[in-house]
Design a protein around this nucleic acid. Structure first.
Ligand SMILES: [Mn+2]
Ligand SMILES: [Mn+2]
Ligand SMILES: [Mn+2]
Ligand SMILES: [Mn+2]
Lengths: 220, 220
DNA sequence: ACCGCGGAATAGGCATGGCTAAATCTTAAC
DNA sequence: GTTAAGATTTAGCCATGCCTATTCCGCGGT
């Protein structure tokens, strides 16, 4: 019934990328996938066909790509590894939040079930990673994080950051310098027109925040 | 001066295997290497030639193989990763000592310098792993562990275990059941002739221990 | 209905790291 | 000194995953 598992890191990264695109509401085209993974379009076509043979994605030439239930389970398992690792590296080994993504990107593929469990236990079975991204459960459930983008927040009203939708190290360092971490309290004081920057207050300090960055900060 | 680093996990495992054989006093022949890594002799020949091109081993056809100073540094770096990981998994994540080797075998290849440092710091810059194997320093020094095999120990004299020269999970479980861990106190009560089993006392219990296992237990 | 353009699939290569089978070298025994 | 066994190397293959260049679809605009 359940298929053999001979998935390489490449398989896992493709499946995860398909899941990420899909969950972000992007249509999963061959080029979107190739772009996400920084590979040539031909490489993506090639791997998608293999994943189709493995029963992990549905694929018809020239159609957009989707995960099968089996594929989604694989994606969620890898994502669970990734986010557990990010949180562990951040909380227990004190790596800064801008470093954990890259590190977890490699470690996620070599985690045994036993080590996954040990890490989850050591963290007290957490539900979100250092960026506020939800950690899938072992049986493949993810809770969606409720909230709105800081760019849409009401003025002069304190909000709590629940998630930061970025992995780029440079930008995370920049946000970190302003203490814009999950659980921080932030207030939008002014909003410039034409999608201009926001004047915000965090930790008693005022900062100007670009609109595209504010869109990545989810608050409640 | 110093070469580019584009070493794959395969390169690292070969270099480490050469180091292990050499340090165990075994002549590093092609077949010993192939045997150690569970690959065909032709595969070993092939990789050894690549390592020679990379300046990591000295190689002449039909001669025995040796690491160059550069190769030895690579081996010690990988070994440091391996043993730090073993200790971390054992002490901080409570994995049993028979599981840590296999886990570290994969993780050792994807450890960044920053994570290596964080792990070493979290452990207080330790010098030995859960099997008593010495952990190389960052600049590539290993202290040799002094001691003698339990099979050669004086009778009725308490010794402290300092090292267990095994990675095989089955045997480690067996020894663990008798509390034969590093730092345990063990006394040899009798020794059967013709390399027969030893009667030992650990933790107030008496056990018969096969001679070949006793040879793997280093005491002081 | 036709065209053309961009996206997608194919064709053909390359590097890596395995393998088996067939030479070939070493060495130890006679 | 020959010779044969065993170790080693070579030759030739294969799967994986990536690439570039080329061909092929399919759709929107005319
Ligand atoms: Mn990855
Ligand atoms: Mn994250
Ligand atoms: Mn390894
Ligand atoms: Mn060890």
């Amino acid at each position: 019934m359940d298929e053999e598992k001979i998935l390489t890191p490449a398989h896992e990264d493709y499946v995860k990328a398909i899941y990420m695109l899909y969950s972000r509401g992007v249509e999963v085209t061959n080029s979107a996938l190739a772009n996400q993974l920084k590979v040539a379009p031909a490489s993506a076509t090639n791997m998608v066909k293999k994943l189709s043979d493995l029963g992990l994605v549905t694929y018809e030439p020239y159609q957009s790509i989707a995960l099968t239930p089996a594929g989604e389970l694989v994606a969620l398992e890898v994502l669970r590894h990734h986010r557990l690792l990010e949180l562990y590296l951040h909380d227990k080994l004190n790596l800064p939040w801008e470093m954990v993504h890259e590190e977890a990107e490699r470690l996620e593929h070599v985690l045994s079930e036993a080590l996954e469990d040990a890490i989850a236990a050591a963290l007290g079975n957490p539900t979100v990673d250092p960026h506020g991204d939800p950690i899938p459960t072992k049986d493949g459930k993810v809770e969606s994080v409720a909230g709105l983008a800081l760019s849409l927040a009401e003025l002069k009203h304190p909000y709590t950051i629940v998630r930061v939708l970025l992995q780029d190290a440079e930008r995370l360092i920049y946000l970190g310098a302003m203490q814009l971490y999950p659980n921080a309290t932030v207030t939008v004081l002014k909003r410039a027109p034409f999608d201009g920057p926001l004047l915000i207050e965090v930790d008693g300090e005022h900062h100007a925040l670009a609109h595209d960055l504010a869109e990545c900060i989810i608050v409640k």
